[in-house]
Structures are given as C-alpha cells and as structure tokens.
Design a protein around this nucleic acid. Structure first.
Length: 420
DNA sequence: TCTGGGGTCCTAGGACCC
DNA sequence: TCTGGGGTCCTAGGACCC
C-alpha cells in the first residue's frame, strides 16, 4: 500500500510576511488582494477574530484595524521565493515530490523505514527551522485521504500538526463526521447532487456502489470515492509540465468607461502574459481577451464578453500579441458600460527549443529579440506602466522615449540587459 | 469608493471520416 | 426494402482547485 504525505504550509502568505517582519509574530495579520479588495490570507490570530477568507476588506476594515489587525498587500514575488525554499527542504525527505500549489506538496513515503509520524515530525521541524514557515502534515494511503488527514492535523491541536489516517476505524469515524464539501474535489454543486441521491457524508460516498457513482457522476467522482477507500487513483506526478495556458487579469480600482483605458489595460496585461510565457520558453497559438462589468452593482447594466483569435504561427512577440489583443477587444467592447475587470489569456502553448527559433515571424529577428528582452528589463525596472505606455503607442517617459528612438539605442541594450 | 488572480480537467455535442 | 455505426477531434462551458 502506498503512503502519501501532504505537507501544507500554515497560513502561507501571512507566514511569509512574518518571516520578513518578525514583529508581526503573535499578531493578527491579513494579506489583501489586488486593490486591497478582499482578504486572501489570514494568520491564526486573524482567523480567530472571525475574519473570513475572501471577505471584502472595505466592509469591516475600520473595525478590524481598531482591534489591531495588521494589513499587508500581497507580494507574490516574495511568496514564490519562500515557496521554493520550502520545496527545496521537502525534496530532501522523499524520492518523489509533487509540488501541487504554492504552499502544498505531496510526498511519496514509500520506502521510508522510519515510523511515518516520527518522520513527518522531523520534516515539520526541519522546515520550520530552515525557512521559518510552519507546516501541517497529513498522511494517508491516497492523496484524498492525505488531504483529509492534513485537515485533521490542522484542526486538532493534540496532533501537533501531524496526523496519519491509516487506521480503518479512524477513517470511518472521520469520514462520517465531515461534510461532503470538506473532501478535495467536492464543492457546492457536486455536494448538492450527491445529497439528492441520499449520499450525505463522505462515508456514504465511500461505501456506495462504484458503477452507480460512475453512471450518475462520472469518472471524477468515481475516483474520489475510490480514493476515500484508500485506493490510490491520483498518482504522484513529480515532473514539471509546461503550462497549458497563461492568464493575466485584474479588477480595476475604479470602473472604466472609456475604450482607451480598457485598451491600455489589455495591452499591459498582454505584455505581462507574453513576458511570463517567454520566461517559460513557450509560444502561443491563440490569444483570448475578456472584459466584464461589476456584477456586484446590481443597478448597473451587466455585460461580459470574451473573444479569441487564432495565431497562424505560434508567437511570443509582445507587439504582435498586443495587436491581436486589441483586435479582439475592439470586437467585444461596447459603449455605455462600466467595466470592472479585464483579462488576457494565452492558449495553445508550445515549447520553443531555442530562444530565437520560431519566436518571431517578423523580418528583424535579432532586433526584435533585443527589443523584447529590453522590454522585460524595463518592465522589471520601471514597472509595467512604462511598457504599457510604450506598447500602446503612447508617449513614454522622455528618457525612455529617447532610448527607444535613439539611433544608438542598441548600444544601450547591454546596459539594460545587465539587469537580467 | 471598496468584492482576487491564476490555473486544470472533464463532458457534451457537433463536425467529420470511413 | 433497406437509410449504420463506430471512431476521432475540437470546442465551449462547467466545475473544481489554491
């Protein structure tokens, strides 16, 4: 029987903030989304105060601040870096590690001779010591049961943050006490449909007839049911795959009515998405743009639309993609709406072996490559608004404009490229 | 005033082929 | 008189995840 551990960082973003600002220890900390719109992470103290995940911050902001809650805007570069450190430590404890998300990994414990809870406690304390991040560890014969065990470890202090759900009796008890929605892969909709046929708990689902589940709910739920039985269906996957899509989207700080503003946003998102894509050595065959109004303002006329364009040749050329994105935007944009959000998706991604190969379909490949690399550097250095201006054909800051227009511009590239 | 951002997988149905 | 059926591929949209 395989044994799988799920290591999950506790309150990850809040914990990261604390590592870099130790005075936040023991304090209630929340991390907010873009525009400081809603709560996306909370320290234990903040959870204990009843601050909900996803809660719109503006609703209770004054109240919480008065009660001493510390607030941080999200810093994904920091979290990504901390995540990599944690994963590096975890790698040393297993022959096979699947990085599932920024704060979670599955570890294969097969062939580990030590008692698994002792082993897990060792992992936990090592991660804590080397990175400053606290983790909880759940162990089970399948990923789904490891998830359940992890949840149990997080919620029951007596476990000390480590719990192995290997005993059949314990499995029955815990599965009978959980709600369907507590199971990985089951959310509101599926839970409702399951209850409609009399399956009210994870235990009911586990004990139901496989063929019945398969017929009524499809392979996804069938796998969940099998996993709950301890049958490992979702195997560990330790190779990193190329991304299948790359998206950049944002909610605007204020509602946008003019086409020009929307266009600036879309061009800016496109350049960021293209930049991400190039960093992963990928090129896109398809670009899709979407815009939407604010669904929370009931009195506003609502509008949502998206449009995709196929690219004849896979490309990661910012200019080319930006032009296609604008084409798409022109098609879906409508007057007299107040837009809240826009996004750009790159799809049909394929790897490019060499940076130069198939990357550009313009004549001046070398020049385009240089310009593109420099744009990435400018982005990093001056912020994306700079490129947004340049990309949209507007007037960038004078110094940058001079850089772009100067005949000797190429001699400046090397300086810019040193940033890399 | 103010409600995130970035992903993956599966399915159903249509088009098309032999 | 009889008017198939199996298979693949593609896409849009749903559902779920962190």
């Amino acid at each position: 029987m395989p044994l799988i551990a799920l290591v999950d960082c506790n309150n990850f973003y809040a914990s990261c903030e604390r590592v870099f600002q130790p005075t936040l220890r023991g304090k209630a900390v929340v991390v907010l989304s873009n525009n400081d719109g809603c709560v996306i992470a909370r320290s234990q103290e903040a959870k204990d105060m009843g601050i909900a995940m996803g809660a719109p911050w503006h609703l209770n902001q004054r109240d919480y601040k008065a009660r001493g809650v510390y607030v941080r805007s999200s810093n994904y570069a920091l979290y990504g870096d901390m995540s990599a450190r944690v994963m590096e430590v975890l790698k040393q404890f297993t022959p096979q590690l699947e990085i599932y998300s920024i704060d979670e990994s599955f570890l294969n414990l097969d062939g580990i001779s030590a008692a698994h809870t002792d082993y897990a406690r060792n992992i936990k304390s090592t991660v804590q010591q080397w990175t400053g991040i606290g983790v909880s560890i759940g162990i089970g014969p399948s990923k789904t049961l490891a998830k359940v065990a992890n949840r149990y470890a997080k919620r029951h202090h007596a476990t000390g943050g480590v719990y192995a759900l290997t005993d059949p009796q314990a499995q029955e008890t815990i599965l009978s006490e959980l709600a369907l929605e507590d199971i990985w892969g089951i959310a509101h909709n599926l839970a409702r449909r399951l209850r409609a046929v009399g399956l009210n708990s994870p235990l009911d689902l586990r004990n139901s007839e496989t063929s019945f589940i398969r017929d009524r709910f499809g392979v996804v739920v069938e796998r969940i049911a099998r996993e709950l039985r301890g049958e490992s269906c979702l195997h560990l996957d330790d190779v990193t795959h190329d991304k299948k899509s790359i998206m950049v989207s944002r909610s605007f700080g204020h509602l946008i009515e003019h086409y020009q503003d929307l266009r600036e946003a879309v061009v800016s998102y496109t350049s960021r998405a293209a930049e991400k894509m190039r960093r992963q050595h990928l090129a896109a065959h398809h670009i899709s743009v979407f815009i939407e109004t604010n669904r929370f303002i009931k009195s506003d006329q609502q509008y949502r639309a998206h449009y995709g364009i196929d690219l004849p040749v896979a490309t990661s050329d910012t200019h080319l993609l930006a032009h296609r994105a604008i084409d798409a935007l022109k098609i879906i944009w409508r007057k007299n709406y107040r837009y809240k959000k826009a996004g750009v998706m790159l799809l049909g991604l394929e790897p490019i072996e060499q940076v130069n190969d198939g990357l550009f379909d313009r004549a001046d490949n070398a020049g385009a490559l240089k310009r593109m690399k420099a744009m990435d550097c400018i982005n990093q250095r001056f912020g994306h608004n700079t490129l947004m201006l340049a990309g949209a054909g507007m007037q960038p800051k004078w110094s940058l404009r001079r850089a772009f227009l100067s005949p000797s511009f190429t001699t400046h590239w090397d300086d810019l490229l040193k940033v890399d």
